[in-house]
């Protein structure tokens, strides 16, 4: 405890094999404790899927990883660098700089895409490399082209978000995250806002990323997809990890009552 409070910035941690570690993460909104000490580990190439019923804290957990939500306690370790929860401490300039460094290594894809409506697909993807990484515009343009190509939208680069379907928008958003060439990708229910017939195109892109050996943490309700790609499935219930393990174990033979009834609701 004492050590965490004194170390403000990143410091070296002894387990280099793990790429990302969430340690003892707690998060409260006012008096409501949403995460009650959660631990998650991902080594390079791991795909961890988070499942759980609505309100169980999945989004909160994934948003704490890149500090879009400020954790109340615990720490995030990325690549051996420790990013502690601030708790009562005030943010300093150094802190903000650290957070920005962290976010540049962690890509995120949102449920509602969040593409900037005043930028076309190419510009949406270029923004990160140019602004956050300082990549020269020309190189960033090439990079953006290649990632849009990769998600199958090489022919839509000059379309504005309003001119794209939901599935296309989400694929641009994935390209936007990829263009940062992050070490790990976070997905928060990337297909939940999509019409059923558009879900497949996004899942296929994600499947492709999985087969490239990318490290990903995915919140999803697509159980079949989770079964196919996950290295670990984590079941979150009321802010605690209720069960975790290999996808076939978790999804086929749940041990806890809560998981069993959760899965029951997804079988139709």
């Amino acid at each position: 405890m004492a050590e965490r409070e004194t170390s403000v910035g990143p410091s070296l941690s002894p387990s280099p094999k793990t790429l990302l570690e969430v340690r003892n993460l707690r998060k409260s909104f006012g008096s409501l404790e949403v995460l009650k000490g959660v631990n998650v580990k991902a080594a390079k190439g791991d795909i961890v899927t988070l499942i759980g019923s609505s309100g169980s804290g999945k989004s909160t957990l994934i948003r704490c990883i890149n500090f879009l939500e400020e954790p109340s306690a615990g720490e995030i370790v990325l690549d051996g660098q420790v990013f502690p929860a601030l708790g009562e401490h005030r943010r300093t300039r150094k802190h903000n700089a650290d957070l920005i460094a962290l976010r540049r290594k962690v890509g995120m894809v949102f449920q509602s895409f969040n593409l900037w409506p005043h930028r076309n697909a190419l510009e949406n993807v270029m923004e990160g490399p140019v602004q956050a990484l300082g990549v020269p515009r020309k190189d960033a343009r090439e990079r953006a082209h290649s990632y849009l190509e990769k998600v199958g939208l090489g022919d839509r680069t000059d379309h504005y978000p309003s001119q794209l379907s939901g599935g296309q928008q989400q694929r641009v958003a994935i390209a936007r995250a990829l263009a940062m060439e992050p070490e790990i990708l976070l997905f928060d229910e990337p297909t939940s806002a999509l019409d059923p017939e558009l879900v497949g195109e996004v899942l296929r892109v994600m499947q492709g990323l999985a087969s490239e050996g990318r490290t990903m943490i995915i919140v999803t309700h697509e159980m079949q997809f989770a079964l196919e790609v996950s290295s670990e499935v984590v079941f979150l219930s009321k802010g605690n990890i209720e069960e975790r393990g290999a996808p076939s174990d978790i999804l086929r033979s749940p041990k806890s009552e809560a998981l069993a009834s959760f899965l029951q609701r997804y079988r139709s």
């Binding site: 903000n96 976010r103 540049r104 890509g107 969040n114 923004e127 990160g128 602004q131 956050a132 995250a177």
Partner: peptide
């Protein structure tokens, strides 16, 4: 969400404001 998308790729508050 627009602000968060900027934060998530590591833009600074000032960049997000301006851009």
């Amino acid at each position: 969400g627009y602000t968060e998308a900027g934060l998530a790729i590591g833009m600074t508050r000032l960049q997000i404001r301006r851009r």
